[in-house]
Design a protein around this nucleic acid. Structure first.
Lengths: 350, 350
DNA sequence: CAGCAAATTGAAAGCGCTTTGGTCCGTCAA
DNA sequence: TTGACGGACCAAAGCGCTTTCAATTTGCTG
């Protein structure tokens, strides 16, 4: 069933039917009613490609997901929840979501293709790095975009939605300091990722304010896997003056930290404290009533929604000035933190 | 830059240029060369929508992802890796991937829309349930599809790619039985999901073959969260005759099992054994060299690739008879299993 | 009752591509 | 020399929609 058939069926011109369906004012209300009913009855839906051709808009948003490639980067675990949030919003506004899975080295090519083929009206930039090259590229080719995160070192203004990673980790560090911890291990993501850099800044700021020198031996950064959390915890525990607390950049990583701690015969929340960042991934909930881990919490699904809304706003009104949205993470106290243990206690365990 | 401009530029007709670019034989090789070079130089890429309109094909595949809605179902954690695999394949074949995030109750509507708008040439069915209603629906509306998993209770033939869940869990159970375990807890996914049903069947088969009656108190099923693994393990440990081993349907769940075991002061792999299913999620690797958990292993990303290939095959040749592909999971021995402990040992701990 | 504006509706021209149905030339066999 | 034939190319008709420009009708005003 297409427009032509439908209008013939109704004894009207395609013009009128099209107008009726798209809510134009110059069509008689009675006629519109009749058209809508007929469309419903015949299960008519306009062909997206034809509509797109005629209007010049794609009614679709692109998400380019770089996958683990040469550099053995791990796929982003927050991705699923993020697109769930964004997708909800697109559906609500009648937009499609186009996903491009691509090796990192082909990213530029994909963006150009997306633009020149007219596949999408805009894109979301995931997992921004410091001085991310995608910003100038997208600006150059004229594809509207919103960044999920921020790009340190970018001079030009651009659209972004981000969690206040610095303040979150600053607060988390202060929380641990208040509990008496002085040796706090930072288990961070790769620090060419913007968010990881900001988190370390927050951590260091807090230490500095109390006149504590950050110990390089207590700061590591890598792909945030369970094994990384496990290994680096074991390593730090070897330190003659081992940390009594860990600040961790992801739940998955924190699970590895816990494994290491418990394997050493210590108890999380009593002998060793852990604070982690919690993206509220739907499949990795941090406990039910009481959080398992004390955590800086911020819903990545919600972030997805906000990013999508911002992008649609800018597509609808290309003249709009760049917007930004800074989300504050909550600090949720769970079972994984407690006052610093007495030195003697730790000694006798190790 | 579009076809018209490009051909004017070359002093050729659109027809010839189009043919040259699409590899038709009736064009002079020298001309083709010239056209290809010009296209490259001007960075020309045909408009997808126009091409689709003219050919009647969308060059896109749909993935409909139901999200946590009324029934508080948890988003599928394997989703990210699965689409990564499928997406690779699509990109390779010049197809786009269209994602629809939708509340489960609107799924039917989305499929109809996808078809009538001509957005996609086919779809992938995720997370099939027993007697899944999507199969008859998709057959009815004539949208080609491949199921990731299988649908018990479907009479008609259909395309699917699935892991042999039954045999995997049968082997895992036998492995534990061989180690002397007789009380094995099954922590399974929701059993209206087809894979969960098959896994339980495998577990029960193995027990039966050794003349052991399956104890309903040792079989639970729910959304596979960390908390579910934790809670149900604690519950089962209360049993007067508690399990000495657990067979778990997902890594995330198994992490909860481990937490419960260690919280009870027991040691995984010595006091209590755990076997889990491992989808080889890129962000949740089961250790590096030696697996943390003994596991039935099968790459969901690989499954994504295979599903995508099968679907593209069927779209290219609509006459093809339904195909099926059964993947065998590997049983990887890790650090989480060991012989059944002496009864006395367990008693003294509890 | 003439005249004009507002309310409705249509015809047709694109949007950028593919593809059908030619056309125009050399070539080659008869 | 002629006609058939294959090679190389092109004009134009769609694909299913939107939108401009016009046409027609209706309702009022003076």
């Amino acid at each position: 069933m297409n427009l032509k058939e439908l209008s013939k069926n109704l004894g009207l011109s395609q013009t009128t039917v099209s107008r009726a369906l798209n809510g134009y004012p110059e069509v008689n209300e009675a006629t519109r009613e009749r058209v809508l009913r007929a469309a419903e009855r015949h299960n008519y839906r306009p062909n997206t490609r034809a509509k797109g051709l005629a209007t010049g808009r794609a009614l679709a948003i692109g998400h380019v997901i770089p996958i683990a490639g040469k550099h053995e980067m791990v796929n982003n675990p927050i991705f699923g929840d993020f697109v769930a949030g964004a997708g909800e919003t697109y559906t609500l506004h009648g937009y499609d979501m186009v996903l491009s899975i691509v090796a990192a080295e082909n990213e530029e090519h994909i963006y150009r293709t997306l633009k020149s083929r007219g596949t999408v009206d805009g894109v979301v930039v995931h997992a921004p790095m410091m001085q991310d090259a995608r910003l100038p590229l997208l600006t150059d080719i004229g594809l509207p975009f919103v960044v999920h995160g921020r790009v340190s070192g970018s001079s030009a203004a651009y659209n972004w939605v981000d969690v206040n990673n610095r303040s979150a980790f600053e607060r988390a560090t202060n929380f641990l300091l208040d509990l008496g911890h002085r040796r706090i291990g930072l288990i961070n993501g790769l620090e060419y990722m913007d968010f990881a850099f900001r988190r370390r800044t927050g951590y260091q700021n807090a230490l500095e304010q109390r006149g504590i020198a950050a110990d390089p031996a207590l700061m590591v950064s890598d792909d945030m896997t369970e094994v990384f959390g496990y290994r680096s915890t074991l390593d730090m525990m070897q330190n003659p003056d081992p940390p009594t607390a860990f600040l961790v950049s992801s739940m998955i990583c924190a699970i590895g930290v816990r494994r290491a701690v418990e394997e050493r015969g210590l108890r999380v929340g009593r002998d060793v404290s852990i604070v982690t960042h919690d993206d509220e991934l739907s499949y990795l909930q941090n406990g039910k009533d009481v959080p398992i881990f004390t955590a800086t919490r911020s819903s990545v699904r919600d972030a997805g929604r906000r990013v999508a809304e911002m992008l649609l706003r800018h597509i609808a009104d290309p003249g709009l000035a760049p917007q930004t949205e800074l989300l504050e993470a909550q600090l949720m106290v769970g079972q994984s933190t407690g006052p610093v243990p007495l030195r003697t206690h730790l000694k006798e365990q190790s």
